[in-house]
Design a protein around this nucleic acid. Sequence first.
RNA 1: GGACCCGUGGUGUAGUCUGGUUAACAUGUCAGAUUGUCGAUCUGAAGAUCGCGAGUUCAAAUCUCGUCGGGUCCG
Length: 378
Amino acid sequence: MLQLIKKDRNTKARAGKLRTAHGEIDSPFFMPVGTNATVKTLSFEDLLEFDTQIVLSNTYHLFLRPGLDVIGEAGGLHEFMSWNGPILTDSGGYQVFSLAKLRKLTDGGVQFQSHYDGSLQFFTPEKVVDIQNVLGSDIMMPLDECAPYPCSREQAEESVKRTALWAKQSREYFLKTQKKKERQYQFGIVQGATFKDLRERSAQQILEVGFDGYAIGGVSVGEPVPIMFETLDWVLPFLPEDQPRYLMGIGLPDQIVKAVGEGVDMFDTCIPTRYGRHGSAFTRKGRIVVRNAAYIKDFGPIDEACDCRVCKKYTRSYIRHLLNSGEILGLALITYHNVYFYVNLMRQIRDAIANDRYWEFQKEFLEMFRSELEPSTV
RNA sequence: GGACCCGUGGUGUAGUCUGGUUAACAUGUCAGAUUGUCGAUCUGAAGAUCGCGAGUUCAAAUCUCGUCGGGUCCG
């Protein structure tokens, strides 16, 4: 599914094209998170204004609400939410981890209690494929077991073993149930927590099953960032060059820039949307907390280097006021800018790779960008 | 003219009867956390010499007197 177009000369960054049933995607790319069939506060018209290529949605949440009968009758998730572009759906494996209070794991699957109505539910690898078949996602993820951080070796081994078992079942069932007409893809997920040999074992096992692309899971679970990059170092050498590589749940802009330099193609994170709703905005120089009193009379745009429609028109002062007053427009404006920032960053990344200057781009970006910034320096 | 009630961080209140370490709670403000979603939540900080004055006492937001401000009722 991936056509590699360009490999950067000085780094491991690569650029390519992914063909899906709902259009081509230029890689590396970022997937805005739309858990509930919406990228919070944004319309799909908004997303198209700045050429968002793909959105991510979620099996777990959509299965529980509105339910498969609704989305099935609507004609699938694309029809349901009126988005004609590609969709990747997460499997619910992460929710098994993040909603761990309500779960019971066995080799057969995962039993959990709906956090909406408390009803008891059971996911098997096959059922998760079934659900995503109904959703009609262009890229589906198999049920996996995402180990927490920190994590004992025993627990990590268990998670690797179960993830491999489920991967095999998921893939077999996927291939059996695929309709030739609307080609869907399915990625494998590598687990193994923070153990080098377990990461390698998991990578080999998942590779052996064979998927359309490969994801590094079990990161963005609270581990220190250097450990996340170490994990990347361990796993990436195992992944085939001609297939897409997806770093799940990552990350801050500088983390994405670094990971692309290591050879990652796909990212998703709720950071631009969630941080936005919490009052943070991303600029070329780093993250600023627009909510802070420092911007109370700052009548400049969020980011002077940004040409999104929010930065062309609205001031930090005004957006701060909206956020401070709990006005929904504030959430929408800052989210729009942040998602634009991410999508636009990926465009710059692709340009740099195309021109064989990713090393320079990365160096410049990391020198300029600070995840934490003193207001006076922005 | 008389009787009574109320005055405590920006806001709303608790504590006063029965005096006792650093005046509590909510909200707001300020700041931090947030990585396959969380308008959630959590963490930390600043902010009141308890309307003002005098007295009693080892010790007063608390008791007494006066006074100022707000309110209720009676004339």
